[in-house]
Design a protein around this nucleic acid. Structure first.
Lengths: 134, 134
DNA sequence: TTGCGTGCAAAGGTTTTGCATGGCA
DNA sequence: TGCCATGCAAAACCTTTGCACGCAA
């Protein structure tokens, strides 16, 4: 089974994602960070670790607003990120978790009024956060 | 100013998008369709026409669920697609317009409770449509 | 005639794959 | 020891760019 081994690369990548839990990061950011801390890994390894972490549900994968590359976000275990939507600021990249009662209203409305069953995985709503609306 | 000229390519591309208004299509789909109808155009032209149409607000651009490529959708002029979110079925690709009063509630909730100002452009929520929930 | 649109070829960027080697348990 | 993870190089893939030519208005 994949993802069984806890290697240095995988651990360090998850740590970095956890430190940046409030935003999304690109594969390139991770690579740069690892190199800065003295851990020389290959891009391929970064992608493969991210795949495993995504498969384990410990990391969420989205697409950057420009659509040119994938971005990754730490999935805080106790936050149940698979069950609510995320809002991302197009200026600073910060993430807002829509983990409130309104999320239930939204799911219910989509289902009852539009016959649509929302899957939060991969979904992302863009906009501007409080700080960036100036 | 860009987009002034109404060329055959641009017209045919918009027609195809209008015929498929209920779903999103990829640049490759457009190219294939044009070739099938006997109009031989280059991929570059397809991308450039799509850019102009997107700039004019006549076409919406998203990212496919897998994040590997861009998808395009006809923006029905009278529907004000810039003002509401869209739900897309991950099985059949069909699009549901969230153009109802609930959309106002959602915008208001995001703003008042999370300080977040939603931009519908590029945003897409994935899930399963009525027909595909079986 | 002016300037935008197009085709072609090439490059750009991110992500994936094959194969041999290295490392975890 | 057995299997998974990694590095390296190359490929795949979508998309963009430069330049010369063609076409719309």
């Amino acid at each position: 089974m994949a993802g069984n081994y806890n290697t240095v690369s995988k651990t360090k990548i998850l740590e970095y994602l956890e430190q940046n839990a409030g935003r999304t990061v690109r594969a390139h950011d991770i690579l740069l960070h690892l190199h800065e801390t003295g851990l020389v890994v290959n891009v391929t390894t970064v992608y493969r670790c991210l795949d495993r972490l995504t498969g384990e549900g410990r990391v969420l994968k989205y697409t950057a607003e420009d659509g040119t590359q994938a971005v990754y976000q730490f999935a805080e275990p106790e936050h149940h990120c698979e069950e609510h939507l995320h809002l991302q600021c197009i200026r600073c990249g910060s993430i807002v978790h829509l983990d409130c009662d309104f999320m239930d209203d939204l799911k219910l409305h989509a289902l009852e009024e539009h016959g649509f069953s929302i899957r939060c995985k991969n979904s992302i709503i863009y906009g501007l956060c409080k700080e960036c609306q100036a």
